[in-house]
Design a protein around this nucleic acid. Structure first.
Length: 423
DNA sequence: TCTGGGGTCCTAGGACCC
DNA sequence: TCTGGGGTCCTAGGACCC
């Protein structure tokens, strides 16, 4: 029988900031999303003040000022690097693991013949805290969904000491009983509302609910979820999940609404060039590209969204070529007199660079443009993103459609000029 | 005034073909 | 008056995750 351990960093972004500012320990701290838009990470003290996940920053101003909440813009260079450190340590403790997100990983504990899973998990926990400064919680069970659930309880209940082993049937139903149905991995707000109407309020209710009811609304995944809660594994460990994505996207909300095509065109060109870098990093080419623009969804009376997808005769990851196509699409979906607040692109139907079907009628020198892209990527990775860029992005570094981050901490671990100084 | 970004999977429905 | 049916492919949209 498989055994999964889910290791999840506690309030990860906040914990990363605290590693370099230990004086913030015990104080309310939040980290904002891109554009300083919403609270996306909160310390326990901030949670205790009632600051909810995803609440817009402007609605928090009052509580932040009166309760002395410390605020950070998100600093992905720092979090990405801290994440790598944690994952490297985890890798030493398991034959196989799946890095599920920036702050969590599933470890394969299936073949561990000994029964001391709990003390092993405590050991891992201590090691990570000592070597990186990041606190983690660990949940163990025979399915990923149950491991998730165990982790959640380990995190919130002090007496677990940050570790909960749910591999034995004995405690499973008790754990499900105290878990609201919306806290089950895979059940969001919409499903939870439906389930509650049907009298399904806890994870335990869900486990024993009529399959027909689940199936009707949630499809095949609902059935799998039900089995997972019974301890039967339906989602195997996926290794190397990050090495080759199935789609790559880039988008941003603007500082201020944008109305003219030129500015939108520059923004779209920037997202395409960022997306194309990601494609080249994983040696992929895209067969299709979707471009979309939208106005604020908080003004439903004037809301406008439009998108269009182009299919290329030859899959590509060539920035200038993609920008050319992107501009064409943008012209087709652009509508005048609209207050655009966000735009983006999605590359999908990705194929391996080496497997790209060449277009018979394509007479362009692909080897040459490929070398050019490599050179540009090399310069930018050494000199900083955007050092060499397409003219389509516009000349100014401070475009008004660019984004805000007023509370950014230093890139302590990835830039020499921002290393922490110890006096 | 100010409301994130990047992913995944599934399903319904339309177009097309035989 | 009667007006096929099934398979496949594609896309848009909906749901979820962190």
């Amino acid at each position: 029988m498989p055994v999964f351990a889910l290791v999840d960093c506690n309030n990860f972004y906040v914990s990363c900031e605290r590693v370099f500012k230990p004086e913030l320990e015990g104080k309310p701290v939040i980290v904002l999303s891109n554009n300083d838009g919403c609270a996306v990470a909160r310390s326990n003290e901030a949670k205790a003040l009632g600051i909810k996940m995803g609440v817009p920053f402007f609605k928090l101003r009052h509580i932040i000022n009166t309760m002395d909440v410390h605020v950070f813009s998100s600093n992905y260079a720092l979090y990405g690097d801290m994440s790598n450190r944690v994952m490297q340590i985890l890798d030493m403790f398991t034959p196989a693991m799946e890095i599920y997100s920036i702050d969590e990983a599933f470890l394969d504990f299936s073949d561990f013949a000994f029964t001391g899973l709990k003390s092993y998990a405590h050991h891992i926990r201590k090691k990570i805290k000592k070597d990186t400064g990041i606190p983690v919680s660990i949940g163990m069970a025979t399915s990923k969904t149950l491991a998730k659930l165990a982790n959640k309880i380990a995190k919130s209940s002090l007496k677990t000491g940050g570790v909960l082993d749910l591999t034995s049937m004995k405690f499973q139903d008790r754990a499900l009983e105290i878990t609201p149905v919306e806290d089950v991995w895979g059940i969001g707000g919409r499903y939870a509302a439906y389930l509650k109407l049907k009298g399904i309020k806890t994870a335990l209710d869900f486990k024993y609910a009529a399959t027909r009811v689940i199936r009707k609304k949630m499809g095949i995944n609902g059935i799998r979820l039900q089995r997972e809660l019974c301890g039967e594994s339906c989602y195997p460990l996926a290794e190397d999940i990050n090495t080759r994505r199935k789609s790559v996207s880039a988008s941003r909300s603007f500082k201020k609404p944008v109305t003219d095509l030129t500015a939108l065109s520059q923004a779209i060109s920037l997202y395409i060039s960022r997306g194309a870098v990601k494609l080249r990093e994983q040696n992929s080419c895209a067969e299709t590209m979707t471009v979309y623009v939208m106005t604020s969804r908080f003004k439903p009376e004037s809301f406008y969204y439009n998108s269009k997808t182009a299919v290329f005769p030859t899959a590509s990851n060539n920035t200038p070529e993609l920008i050319k196509q992107g501009k064409k699409i943008l012209k087709q979906i652009f509508k005048r007199n609209k207050q655009y607040t966000k735009a983006g692109i999605v590359f999908s139907n990705l194929v391996q660079e080496s497997h790209v079907q060449q277009d018979l009628f394509n007479t362009k020198d692909t080897a040459r443009t490929q070398r050019l892209m490599e050179t540009v990527d090399n310069i930018n990775s050494q000199m900083g993103r955007g050092c060499v860029r397409s003219a389509a992005l516009g000349s100014s570094n401070k475009q008004y459609w660019q984004t805000i981050s007023n509370y950014r901490s230093s890139a302590y671990t990835t830039r020499w000029d921002q290393l922490l100084t110890v006096c």
